[in-house]
Every structure is written in C-alpha cells, then in structure tokens.
C-alpha cells in the first residue's frame, strides 16, 4: 500500500456507497469515516450521490434477491477505471445469513470485488484502509 500511495494522491477518490440489503451497521461506519473524527475528506475521499461520478463502489450487505439487478446496474453505470470494495462480513461470506433463501450473494459472485473488508461491521479505520488499497489498484489500471 505504502509504495503506490504518494502517486495516488494526485487523484482524489470519489466513492459511491451501495446498500444491497445490509443491516445499516456497515453503513453508519462508512458515514462515521466521513465525519469529523476520521475525516477522510481531508484526503479528497468523498461520498457521491450517483455512481456515474464515482471511482470506487462500496458495497455493503449480502445482496438480497430483489437487489441483484440493481447492484449490477449501479456497477455498470460507473465509468472505467473502477474498483469495488466489499464492506462487511455478510457481503463477503454471507455471515449469519449464509443459508437464507432470499440471498444471491456473496458479492464476489455478482461483481468483481477488488478489496474485501472483513468485520461485522468493520471499524472506520479498516474501511479507510480499504479505500487506500483501491487507490493502488486504480493506479495500476491507469498504467500510472
């Protein structure tokens, strides 16, 4: 992470947050990361309201049956190069909902996930670390 970081700073990442059926636990931690205590906006990381402006997509939740096509659509609307971060256990492994009839996840069966963040919910520090890792990946994609 440290190696690619200085270069990555040339571009501030805009993040789109997509809830695919999450319990809100990860979602409030994402907002917490944006708020004064953790304040990622000082790095230029910003939550945007539409996927068309975003470089990184944060997906939370185990992807319920009704949300599959919506999640895919959000991903398609993002411009290349893009990265996907899966936040929280339920998107990564199903967590306590692993045997539910209404789930289609884990997310990596639906979207190409670049960074997995484990935790139920992960701490804001872990989410910030994941976005920093996505920077490196985007740099590689750009050939920078």
């Amino acid at each position: 992470m440290a190696k690619g970081l200085p270069k990555s700073f040339k571009k501030a990442l805009w993040v789109y947050h997509c809830n695919s059926g999450s319990c809100n636990g990860c979602d409030i931690e994402i907002i917490a990361a944006l708020c004064p205590r953790y304040d990622v906006e000082r790095f230029g990381i910003k939550l945007v309201g539409t996927p068309r402006h975003a470089d990184v997509m944060l997906v939370t939740g185990p992807v319920s049956r009704q949300m599959v096509d919506k999640v895919k659509r959000v991903y398609d609307q993002m411009a290349d190069p893009k990265a996907v971060i899966c936040v929280g256990n339920c998107g990564n492994t199903g967590d306590v909902f692993y045997e539910s009839y209404n789930l289609v996840g884990p997310i990596n069966q639906i979207l190409p996930v670049d960074v997995h963040v484990i935790g139920c919910p992960p701490r804001p520090e872990a989410i910030i670390n994941a976005v920093a890792k996505a920077w490196v990946k985007l740099e590689t994609l750009e050939g920078g």
Partner: peptide, 29 residues
C-alpha cells in the same frame, strides 16, 4: 422487502443463544 434476509426463517435451525447474534444483525443501529 429489498432487505428481506429471512431472519425469522433462519431461526429454525439455530438455538436461542445463536439467535441472539442473528437478532443483533437485523439492524446495525
């Protein structure tokens, strides 16, 4: 129903102590 995760149904295969942790994950707030 977009976040219908079948929490109540999943309880049929778990004991009450396990359900405590399932119940916790109904809502993060």
């Amino acid at each position: 129903g977009h976040v219908h995760r079948a929490v109540e149904w999943a309880s049929r295969k778990r004991n009450p102590i396990q359900i405590l942790y399932l119940a916790e994950r109904i809502c993060g707030i």
